[in-house]
Design a protein around this nucleic acid. Structure first.
Lengths: 155, 155
DNA sequence: TATTGTTATACTCTATAACTATA
DNA sequence: TATAGTTATAGAGTATAACAATA
């Protein structure tokens, strides 16, 4: 019955653990747990998860960002961003211009309506965050952030 | 200059920390770090991230799974799965049947070619996993899994 | 020539509703 | 009537290549 060196079969313990102990899956499960609470809030306000990442990046940035900066921070590709920025601009959630010193480089900032949206959604999402923070405890949450950062740094 | 109770402005420390300390973003960054190494391997073998999740779930399961089971385990919606399973079946990577006791319920298992694919990709991905495990250390990795599981459990 | 961003194109996944067939 | 799965449809994101404008 499935010797240790057999090719992994359906009931093989290693195979079972492999899926359960897959780092991408563990990260996905945790993220889904968080996002399942958060997505309905975003949907109510007519923004997708990816659009929200853009708005959050812009609202947190001290200075306007280029498309390249945004791409790096939000993990969205250029073509996706191009279309998305056009749509967000049409909705007056962001503003676009060109860099003074380099006409190729775009200069993107959050617009007042975008900041309002972030300010509206923020408090609503806080309850979700508090629920998770309370469930884990502050020390565990700190550890989690630390470990996630270290994992990200391995890229 | 931005009193503590001011609405978050571009240079506001809380806003900065908010994006940096966003749990969804931290989870995404970590996951992207892992997947950026793994995705090329999957692409070389002609499977998407989501298809890989299905194949892994099936290869790890002791018994055949229903579409509903798969949906739960892979975080894919029914319609996505329906199309994907048709495509995987056409490629002989999975096999489908009906449950003996309930003709509505599908019975899906991995096919030999699918198991071969998992067996081929597995070792290739092991190098990626070892790199991360070495960078973090075994204790940290254990902690990470534990914290991710606890986070997932809050859903 | 290299870089920044956009446009083009094809494919995949998301999301909701309507539908089929069982139970 | 309720459940399991599929089909229909619309929209959004992924990915690569080709392109325009600028450096």
């Amino acid at each position: 019955m499935n010797p240790p060196d057999a090719r992994a079969g359906p009931a093989d313990d290693r195979a079972l653990r492999a899926f359960d102990r897959s780092l991408p899956m563990a990260l996905l499960r945790a993220r889904e747990a968080v996002m399942s609470r958060f997505r309905p809030i975003l949907a109510e306000h007519g923004v997708t998860e990816q659009q929200w990442r853009v708005l959050r990046a812009l609202s947190s940035a001290a200075d306007p960002l280029s498309v390249g900066d945004l791409s790096e921070q939000t993990f969205l590709l250029g073509p996706s961003l191009s279309r998305m920025l056009a749509s967000l601009e049409e909705r007056s959630l962001i503003e676009r211009g060109s860099a003074a010193d380099d006409a190729r480089r775009a200069v993107i900032r959050i617009a007042p309506a975008g900041r309002d949206l972030v300010a509206t959604i923020g408090p609503e999402s806080e309850a979700t965050y508090r629920h998770i923070a309370d469930a884990l405890g502050d020390d565990a949450l700190d550890s989690l952030y630390d470990l996630l950062e270290r994992t990200a740094a391995t890229a």
